[in-house]
Design a binder for these strands. Structure first.
Lengths: 209, 209
DNA sequence: AGCCACTTGTATCAAAAGGTACAAGTTTAA
DNA sequence: TTAAACTTGTACCTTTTGATACAAGTGGCT
């Protein structure tokens, strides 16, 4: 199955005309690990849809980062999507976390098709809705939960995503994911270990419960 | 000008067919101050578009609140919008802050029209985009800024919204807006007063710079 | 005037989170 | 195998934020 066929299947694109358009305008690219797809404050010229691999999306301050979400196969970064509807700079960074195949579509077609083709309309709308609700939940967590809770939440969701109770990550990286410092992460993890909630090894965290 | 005419003008709705639909299915309501439009965890049955007045949208924990945004005339709460595309419960509270006129549209028409009518498509898409970007900026502030900064940001944006350097609000209410406690607000405001950034009076805060 | 509800100012304490510093362990690669 | 880079653990301290408590001020109402 070609990447385009995967795309059509994943987004349930049945309109022949739309398939033709996408075949004509879309570009398949294989990106190595750690390639930037969009960068904060730069203009967006393409809508990228992930076919396989994994893309991390985050925001950055001078010295801190905070994870926004991951883009999984047959999803798009909603922010590049939003940028395609009106010429604007990216508010986030997005970078591949492993070798990733994407299909790039020039922004000018994206909003056009959303009115012409039902399945494209559903795709864009759903992307917005899901991302919005996601972000809203994250916002609530950030507002009301303490760091130790957000940290364990992160670990659990990682375990889930990878289908493994062992998460391979350094404290430093973990600190970046949840927007704090390395020392705080070390302290919290140690406490969780004393409480028999995790087991710590070098660059490995095992969830026990 | 009727409320419907205001709506058509505000959203740039020129399609006669769509105007007919809206006239047929829409309901104009005048809501007194402090009326709930949607409540957290309850189902949404209508899309409400604000014609005049002001609606506050926020999230709640057991004991804390945090402001999400205000819905101004000729806007809709993007969350009820998102709910109209798939049957789901509200993630937020929304309540009128003054007497407010709204037009209610049953949810089942909202997504239908977004594919049939260009202006409705633009309206829904723009609502999503703007709200998403808004929320993203708030998220970043919440992640990286300290409370005193978020507090003064809030005051400045209120001053802007009301076109006045005097904000009439109690410390308690202010605490709820930014998601902290009353004592913290009092302390921070006092410090800003010592720094000649604000002047404090009973239930009034004057911005000096 | 006198009462009541609400508001504001603060002092004290406690908890959460972050910063600095350093020692020791692990990996990688020259 | 040895140095360099990265990783982890932890002690100590500071700042930020929150909780409790109380006194005093304000405005509205009877």
């Amino acid at each position: 199955m070609t990447e385009f066929e995967q795309l059509f299947k994943g987004l349930n694109i049945v309109e022949e005309k739309l398939q033709e358009h996408i075949l004509k305008e879309g570009i398949v690219q294989t990106l190595p690990k750690n390639t930037f797809i969009v960068e904060q404050d730069k203009y967006i010229k393409w809508l990228a849809i992930v076919i396989s691999g994994k893309v991390r999306v985050w925001q950055e301050n001078e010295d801190r980062q905070i994870l926004l979400y991951y883009v999984n196969p047959i999803q798009t970064c909603v922010l590049s999507l939003s940028a395609t509807f009106r010429d604007c700079k990216s508010l986030v960074h997005a970078k591949t976390e492993m070798e990733t195949i994407i299909i790039k579509i020039p922004v000018r077609f994206v909003s056009e098709w959303s009115f012409t083709f039902k399945s494209w309309n559903i795709f864009t709308t759903n992307s917005f809705i899901i991302s919005y609700e996601d972000l809203l939940l994250s916002y609530k967590d950030l507002a009301f939960k303490k760091i130790n809770e957000r940290l364990i939440d992160y670990l659990r969701s990682e375990a889930n995503r990878n289908n493994s109770s062992i998460i391979q990550i350094s404290h430093q990286q973990l600190a970046k994911e949840v927007g704090t410092t390395r020392e705080v992460v070390s302290k919290i993890l140690k406490q969780y270990e004393l409480d028999h909630i995790v087991k710590l090894q070098f660059k490995k965290i095992e969830l026990l419960s």
